[in-house]
Design a protein around this nucleic acid. Structure first.
Lengths: 205, 205
DNA sequence: GCTCGACTGACACAACTGTTTCAGTAGCGG
DNA sequence: CCGCTACTGAAACAGTTGTGTCAGTCGAGC
């Protein structure tokens, strides 16, 4: 039996090759007015081939969104735990994630992310379906694993996760719009100080 | 001399009437795949008329975005100052704004807002140009007027503004995606507590 | 009554959309 | 050499897009 018969379609070599090229194209041009012919021309292919490999335009878009999520998840994986395997705590995790979010080389990916997020809100059906809520889940899950287990399971821990996520997302939106990394990073640092001060593992009233 | 000759076009009665109808339509259907013919049919008009009144499709979109910003600004105006004219402080302002953002009846507007924001990031030219950065400015300005003047002019005050904006925006994204108003509102409240604790007007080290 | 401006309907135009049909070609196991 | 699978090119399909053209209606002011 071939390794994976349960997945709808095992991606062929050509498929992943073209997907990668299309992904680079989409990072430059956005997903909003993506069109098959210009895309195909830019990556040295043809609409016919894209249809053959991805069935639909929707299939292509789904594959591209999944590809973007892969980049996101590999980043999140590097954040989770320290070298000794223990949870690193919420605040250090935020520091790492923010460094990644604020890095200039990730702007395109994060703009694409924002585009997909907003679109999945307005049009909850089709290829974009569920992108926004999936992302929220992904991040909240990772942030939970960063918390020490006592905090993780408490109600306040859940609140602190949600709050941390909100700060990251809001700061990201700001920096994407204004490019004023200094101002926004100062705000994030301020928040980290606030969170440290109220850290339930250091504050024992 | 007529009242306004400097503005490019004084909106006629018919123009604002159709704009209002189109605005309602766009709140339902989103701006991403807006098309003249379906829109015109839905609001009892014709593409011809829309072209006549707004020149372009881009002109229409610009008018719609301006219309959306109007709703945003009228909300922000109500937040600024207390009845006696004094600044109400950052934390009470956040409370008011969040109540508005979390209200279910504003979901459509806020989704439209998110859509326009993301789009203006990816495609910085055309009708969407500058929407994101304009919005950041609008909000930061209003938040500044809410701060007592000593805080407003300090560097830390600026940081607190940016942070407050980030929390609001991030929490908004979360609630738009998940609809979990209880969880997100708890996070915002938590943040308000943190901010109160570190309020420079009450903390005098 | 006439004119002028605001507004509108019907239709055509070229460009572009996703998708399909038909006809291949290249490589590879038998 | 055969047949099979993976892939590709050219062209066409029907539908939609924004926009332009020409003509027309309607109401207000002279």
């Amino acid at each position: 039996m071939p390794p994976e018969t349960t997945t709808p379609a095992a991606p062929s070599a050509r498929q992943t090759e073209l997907l990668e090229a299309a992904y680079r194209y989409v990072l430059d041009h956005g997903l909003a007015d993506l069109s098959l012919r210009p895309l195909a021309a830019a990556i040295g292919s043809s609409p016919r081939v894209l249809m053959f490999l991805f069935d639909n335009k929707d299939g292509l878009v789904r594959a591209l969104l999944a590809r973007a999520r892969t980049d996101e998840l590999t980043m999140l994986d590097q954040v989770g735990q320290a070298s000794d395997g223990a949870a690193i705590g919420l605040v250090p995790a935020l520091e790492r994630v923010w460094a990644w979010l604020a890095a200039a080389e990730h702007r395109q990916l994060l703009q694409l992310w924002a585009e997909a997020y907003a679109r999945s809100l307005v049009e909850p059906n089709g290829a974009w379906a569920g992108f926004a809520s999936t992302t929220v889940d992904d991040w909240l899950t990772v942030l939970a694993t960063c918390q020490p287990s006592a905090e993780r399971d408490s109600a306040e821990g859940a609140v602190r996760r949600t709050l941390a996520l909100a700060v990251l997302r809001g700061a990201l939106l700001d920096v994407l719009a204004t490019g004023d990394e200094a101002r926004v990073t100062a705000a994030v640092r301020h928040q980290l100080a606030l969170l440290r001060h109220s850290d339930p593992s250091t504050t024992r009233p």
